[in-house]
Design a protein around this nucleic acid. Structure first.
Length: 581
RNA sequence: GUCCUCGUAGCUCAGCCGGAUAGAGCACCAGAUUCCUAAUCUGGAGGCCACAGGUUCGACUCCUGUCGGGGACACCA
């Protein structure tokens, strides 16, 4: 349960009472009213702006309203003290007994602690990675993969039904290029020198594909014209690349529910249907686009083509869906794909790299048009990953051989560190990834800080079971044990931090911001480490106290609830909650 | 030229749908280990939240403009 949401409801009920007795007028706007942890803990446990928010329409002094509210709230058994502060805040201080019950809640709920129903079972389709099937994934894709995956897990935890989806761009000319590149590796496998013409993919990863082609076709393709083999080789190589990509994804713990092929849209009228849906709304027309502002391409000439009125939905200009020769542009199958997704899910999220930023408006426009003006698509851009080695930036280049793949990164630093590092940053902020830092000074990496907290708890639990010989240390019985010895300010502070977890999940899920989970876990770990170290000076805070079973069990309940929260959070981020370090 | 995005401590970044005295880590200074893992903890110092207006009880947060960094800009995907 999210105590802040709960108290917000309580406060709204108190406002209703004030309306009923005539203190406040009816029909007040309550949307802006909050109940949240105050920035400064000395202000109390929950702060509300309710009085200030209604003061103006009610034409009353905010402090007076706050005072009336406080009088009502002070009667609540969960509340120790309700007071007015500043311009009209109402601060609530909750009883220790109330906090101890929250601890018991966390223990009882276990893996479910923090789950919420904000998703209300709505089906969300999260599309991410969707890299062209022409080679292994690189670092840039890694960020998108990790972000999308954590976002999907987060939404799941918040009560959504989630589909993790990958759109395979296997319908365009880049897969022809792939086929031609693979064919050169095929020739090479048969003892001929490969002719890597300009524009082909020179990477080594196609060498085994060439060999596999020999296994499949022998030398039968060697002297045939391209038209005879292109289709087969294209399919073969695309499949091989998708296998490679699936392996790459699995190495960072990403498993997709759905791989959706662009090619499957062609020739079945799917694209035509989607375009027809837009045409019905009068959003398709023949026209000629203005030349682009600024630097004009040398070969620019006016061309009549089929256009979509995306500018009616917030795009800068209308966008072509057919080339002047009548074939589809890339945008057309993409519209069809999203049209299909809209029918399969309630909400869509696309995770794009920053280099696709220019595509956002038109895609949103198309979805808005197709869903009757509703905003059902959110697009998250992941900014570029800047690579550093020993403090110096280096650019990736296929030619120069400084192309860093996802596999390189995972082999060097491991999935946990990679995932946590990339998630302790907002998706739309650029990310500096310094190998030296992440790998050698790994003790400075926040992921270890959080994992260490979890490991310390596991260690204390082992000690309690082995040395102190305590029995019945499972969470269910700890939840029922006497927690009234939990009084120390630092211990209660940790309880309060744990009780914030459900609210954090909700906030992160509603805003599609998994990084908040990472930051929260860091804070939680910090509070835990602090309590741990206080045990040096304050023996009553040592988790395992010889001969004091009641005190020990109360503290074990506290740290187990901490471990549960850390573990639930790390599970969302896809990071292992280690038992020891 | 247009659009998107970012600008917060020396550095890397948080700051929740507008709330009270703007927070962490690193680096710097001073401390803690007969004690459950020191990959830890305690304290200090460090700020015109790029700049200028606007909206209001209140702005790091929302709006407009300026400056600065990054990205994208016809029938490529």
């Amino acid at each position: 349960m999210d105590i802040f949401a709960e108290f917000r409801t309580t406060i709204l009920a108190a406002l209703d009472m004030l309306v009923a007795d005539g203190t406040l007028p009816e029909g007040l706007e309550t949307r802006g009213i909050t109940a949240e942890p105050p920035r400064d803990a000395t202000h109390g446990d929950i702060a509300s702006n309710a009085a200030m928010a209604v003061a103006k329409p009610a034409k009353k002094n905010p402090r007076e309203i706050a005072s009336a509210l406080a009088t009502i709230l002070a009667e609540d058994p969960r509340v120790d003290k309700a007071e007015v502060a500043g311009p009209g805040f109402m601060n609530l201080r909750l009883s220790e007994a109330f906090w101890r019950e929250r601890l018991a809640d966390a223990l009882v709920q276990g893996d479910d602690f923090g789950k919420s129903d904000v998703g209300a079972g709505r089906h969300v389709n999260v599309e991410y990675v969707s890299a062209n099937p022409t080679g292994p994934l690189h670092v840039g894709h890694t960020r998108g993969a990790i972000f999308g995956d954590a976002l999907a897990s987060l939404l799941e935890f918040a009560g959504h039904k989630v589909t993790r989806e990958y759109y395979i761009n296997d319908g365009g000319s880049q897969v022809d290029t792939l086929a031609r590149s693979a064919f050169q590796r095929y020739r090479e496998a048969l003892g001929h020198a490969p002719e890597m013409a300009e524009g082909l993919y020179p990477g080594d990863y196609l060498i085994p594909v060439g060999q596999a082609m020999v296994d499949k076709w022998g030398d039968s393709l060697l002297d045939k014209p391209e038209d005879d083999w292109l289709l087969d080789v294209r399919n073969f190589a695309t499949d091989a690349m998708m296998d490679l990509i699936r392996e790459d994804l699995a190495s960072v713990g990403v498993v997709m529910d759905e791989f959706y092929s662009e090619k499957s849209l062609y020739g079945k009228g799917v694209i035509e249907d989607a375009i027809a849906a837009l045409e019905e709304k009068g959003l398709i027309y023949q026209g000629v686009l203005e030349p682009p502002k600024g630097k004009k391409p040398d070969d620019w000439e006016p061309r009549e083509q089929t256009l979509f009125k995306s500018s009616e939905f917030g795009d800068d200009v209308d966008r072509p869906i057919k080339k002047s020769d009548g074939s589809w542009t890339y945008f057309a199958p993409d519209i069809a794909y999203h049209y299909d997704k809209l029918q399969r899910a309630d909400e869509l999220i696309d995770v794009f790299g920053a280099d696709h930023g220019g595509y956002v408006k038109r895609m949103k426009a198309a979805c808005k048009a197709l869903s009757g003006g509703e905003e059902r698509l959110d697009i998250k851009l992941t900014q570029l990953v800047k690579l550093f080695e020993n403090g110096a930036e280096f650019k990736m280049s296929k030619r120069a051989g400084t192309f860093v793949t996802l596999k390189d990164v995972i082999d060097m630093v491991g999935p946990d560190v990679t995932r946590f590092s990339m998630l302790t940053r907002k998706n739309d902020a650029p990310l500096d990834f310094d190998f030296a830092k992440v790998k050698e000074q790994s003790k400075d990496n926040p992921v270890y800080y959080v994992q260490y907290a979890h490991a310390r708890i596991c260690s204390a639990m082992r000690k309690a079971a082995n040395e102190a010989g305590l029995s019945a240390l499972n969470d269910a019985s700890l939840a029922k044990s006497d927690l009234s010895t939990l009084k120390h300010e630092a211990a209660l502070g940790l309880v309060k931090k744990i009780a914030e977890w459900p609210r954090q999940v909700r906030g992160a899920a509603e805003n599609h911001e998994p990084h908040r989970i990472a930051f929260y876990l860091y804070d939680l770990a910090s509070e835990f480490h602090s309590v741990y170290n206080l045990g040096a000076k304050n023996p009553e805070l040592r988790f395992v106290q010889e001969g004091k079973e009641i005190e020990t069990k109360a503290l074990l309940a506290l740290i187990r609830a901490t471990a549960i929260t850390i573990s639930n959070g790390l599970r969302i981020l896809g990071v292992t909650p280690v038992q020891e370090m």
